[in-house]
């Protein structure tokens, strides 16, 4: 077993996928609990479509994709937050408009410029997508996201639990809402190609929702989602290698299985 694993991860594309994937899963799980509890689940979904559009334009223009997509998606995150808070349009309509427009623009740019990309890989994730310098950028981004989350953990908790109370007692909730959505934007862009544009946002949400079935404290939800997320990623990566399925899809199905088990445990506990 150990031998076999060392063979698999001896391939450089597999070890790259493992490094980036574990870090992204960790970040996604951390942010996921805040997104779920703040009812922001759909923001991740919208941003991943914006990410898709940005990657398409970068591919057509021949620019380094991550450097191009990260700022674009961060701007989109700001925009969504602003529209949800201040605008007359509801948050969910804003997300729907933003995500379908980005998808459409991305597709048009690709077909006009005659660029062929692996659509399947973009949508559902591909372990072959990562290049060496992507790994460096992804590692740096993930470490920054984790560090920010840990430093601001207590404040993020306070603002997530009760925004009005936090604002009233002098915590600047607005800043933390921005922080959460900017970090989310970064995680989505970094994780997108490995996990797929369609699936990355559910990878943020799944571990949190799963842990909330059984955990009682915010801290245990955070820790438990991080573990669930990393374990499902690693197992999904190995399985997808063996039976040759899209990585993201494999991980989502594993996440679903874990969710069902946790939901069952939660039910049984409630009965007692």
């Amino acid at each position: 077993m150990i031998n076999e694993l060392s063979v698999i991860f001896g391939y450089s594309f597999m070890s790259r996928a493992l490094i980036v994937g574990v870090l992204v899963s960790l970040c996604a799980a951390l942010l996921g609990s805040s997104l779920v509890l703040k009812r922001y689940s759909m923001i991740g979904d919208g941003l991943s479509h914006v990410g898709y559009g940005a990657f398409a334009i970068a591919a057509a223009a021949g620019i380094a994709p991550l450097w191009f997509a990260i700022p674009i998606v961060i701007v989109a995150a700001f925009l969504l937050l602003f529209i949800t808070k201040k605008g007359k349009m509801g948050g969910d309509s804003a997300i729907a408009i933003l995500s379908s427009s980005s998808l459409a623009i991305g597709m048009i740019v690709l077909s006009l410029c005659n660029v062929t990309i692996d659509i399947n890989g973009y949508m559902f994730g591909s372990i072959l997508a990562l290049k060496d310098n992507d790994v460096a950028v992804s590692v740096v981004c993930s470490v920054i996201v984790c560090a920010m989350y840990i430093i601001f953990y207590h404040r993020i908790f306070a603002v997530t639990f009760d925004e009005s109370f936090s604002s009233a007692t002098g915590i600047r909730s607005g800043i933390y809402n921005v922080l959460i959505s900017v970090l989310t934007a970064v995680v989505i862009v970094v994780g997108m190609r490995l996990m797929g544009a369609l699936l990355i946002s559910s990878l943020m949400i799944f571990p949190a929702v799963t842990s909330m079935r059984v955990c009682r404290s915010f801290r245990s939800v955070t820790v438990c989602s991080a573990i669930v997320s990393v374990v499902c990623f690693t197992a999904g990566l190995i399985i997808s290698y063996y039976i040759d399925i899209p990585t993201g899809a494999g991980i989502v199905v594993l996440d679903l299985a874990v969710f069902l088990v946790f939901a069952l445990i939660g039910r049984i506990r409630e009965r007692q």
Partner: peptide, 22 residues
């Protein structure tokens, strides 16, 4: 009370302590 708090996983200790942040 907000709707979000109805299923929010947090212990009493975590909630009370968050009042000290300011």
């Amino acid at each position: 009370q907000t709707a979000a708090q109805k299923d929010f996983p947090a212990t009493v200790w975590e909630v009370v302590l968050s009042g000290c942040l300011n």
